[in-house]
């Protein structure tokens, strides 16, 4: 920061810059989004081919119980792997950008993203044992809401991703037989698209 500078335009820019830097965490890694999306698509394809499930015509009543427990474990594994990938690559990017990984802005983002998200995960876990056909639409719904909320504390674009996820959640309520396909679009394809958008816009220097 320069000591003496009386240019009011620059001063105002500095103020804006500091306000943003102290309240928004912009080091989220877009590349990790691409990886997570691809991982999700691979996981679902493996699941569908291993258990002979048609993603375009799925019927919950036809599936044996054993498939559900595999799906549950696969989904949990996928979730932890995704969180690990996103965290690792975001920490790396923050270090590159010389931004504190556990500063004001990242704490805010974390709280605002993970409070609704962790309640959502708990909600879906309980539903898994009582109303399994609601798990897919509600997981998209909760994830979308968490992203929408997180958008205030990071790149604004995350909000649009959140809206798409919520919309896909609503679609799921109408098209029961496409649940696997829509879920894969939401957690796979959309991550790849948004991750690539972020990567090419902010990360490719």
């Amino acid at each position: 920061m320069k000591k003496e500078d009386n240019n009011p335009v620059e001063t105002l820019n500095d103020i804006k810059n500091l306000m943003e830097r102290s309240s928004k965490f912009i080091s989220l890694s877009g590349f990790s989004g691409i990886l997570i999306g691809i991982l999700t698509i691979i996981c679902v394809s493996w699941f569908c081919s291993a258990y002979d499930i048609d993603p375009l015509n799925m019927d919950y009543d036809d599936l044996p119980d054993q498939h559900f427990s595999v799906a549950l474990f696969a989904a949990m594994g996928l979730m932890f792997a995704s969180i690990a990938i996103a965290t690792f690559m975001t920490v790396r990017r923050a270090n590159q950008m010389k931004v504190s990984i556990w500063g004001l802005a990242s704490k805010r983002l974390f709280i605002n993203m993970f409070t609704p998200l962790s309640i959502g995960i708990l909600f879906c876990l309980v539903l898994f044992f009582s109303h399994i056909d609601l798990v897919v639409p509600l997981s998209l719904m909760f994830y979308g809401m968490s992203l929408f909320n997180a958008g205030n504390y990071t790149q604004q674009g995350i909000r649009s991703l959140g809206v798409v996820e919520m919309f896909l959640g609503v679609l799921c309520l109408v098209f029961m037989e496409y649940h696997i396909l829509i879920w894969t679009i939401g957690f796979g394809l959309m991550h790849v698209i948004y991750g690539a958008y972020m990567y090419f816009k902010f990360e490719k220097y």
């Binding site: 920061m1 001063t11 500095d14 103020i15 306000m19 830097r21 102290s22 309240s23 500063g103 004001l104």
Partner: peptide
């Protein structure tokens, strides 16, 4: 500039720690 910067941060954040200010 330091005081101006400090106020800019405090306008958008409640209760900020010394170390956070120092870093920013």
């Amino acid at each position: 500039r330091v005081r101006l910067g400090m106020m800019s941060i405090l306008m958008v954040n409640e209760w900020v720690e010394f170390i956070e200010l120092k870093e920013l």
